[in-house]
Amino acid sequence: MAALPPYASTGQKAWYWGFRLICVLVFFFLIFPLLVIVPLSFNPLPYFTFTPGMLALEADAYSMVNYNDFFTNIDWQNALYNSVRIAPVATILSVSLGTLAAIGLSQSHVPFRGAIMAVLISPMIVPLIISAAGMYFFYSRIGLQGTYVGVVLAHAALGIPFVIITVTATLVGFDRSLTRAAANLGANPVRTFFKVQAPLILPGVISGGLFAFITSFDEVVVVLFVGSAGQKTLPWQMFTGLREQISPTILAVATILVVISICLLTTVELLRRRSERLRGMSAQ
């Protein structure tokens, strides 16, 4: 929206500022729920609202007790351990398979490209509850239900569309003459891939990997059905906590997760800008 011209009428001025106010309110709606849990997570009392002491900014109205609970409670620590054990393995699986396939899909002559793409993207489109139900039925048939391997495979499948999408997007702007030049200079396809193609598509691969990681790390529906008590992840523990009795520790965990998301988001944004710069596609 261009700046307000000096000759704007009163009505235009009112509309201009009114519109901005609406937008500010929407931004507030988007961000407020995330911000409000941060101070609430320091509330030592088991209420989910601001105590008078907190509003008066008294130091002793804030406490780390919820964080202490998170780091000492065996349930939460187990859940954290499971999350850390599942998400990276699932990510590695989806990134390695997904990157290969994305390179294959970006070649100029691929038979059944549309159909293959539709199948590969489908885990993102099919509602999670349906994926979870299907996987529960099928994995219990083949003995993977309630196992670590089952959860990792399921999460890898859910992360793949994100890898495919981000990596193919990076490959769209890829200059094919670079690989031809490398081949011309005597590099074999493997060397060409690692020395020429890989560094250029790396930002796309990493952000695809981060998407896949966060998909697995935040995923709860599928793990709820495919996993058993031994694979209880952080989101699962939060889900049980929220459904049964909501303990203030959840707010501490939520705050930690918000901080993690901020880090991931920053990384992805930096990578995206770097990739656009590298490929000479300056931000338009």
Binding site: L93, L97, G98, L100, A101, I103, G104, L105, Q107, S108, H109, V110, P111, I116, V119, L120, S122, P123, V126, I130, S131, A133, G134, M135, Y136, F137, F138, Y139, R141, L153, A154, A156, A157, I160
Partner: peptide
Amino acid sequence: QKLRALMLIAPLLIFILVTFAAPIADM
């Protein structure tokens, strides 16, 4: 060229067919 492209895609396609498409078919 087509074959090479398909070879690159094949591992993932098989993976998705086993871990995702088969469960849906089972349902």
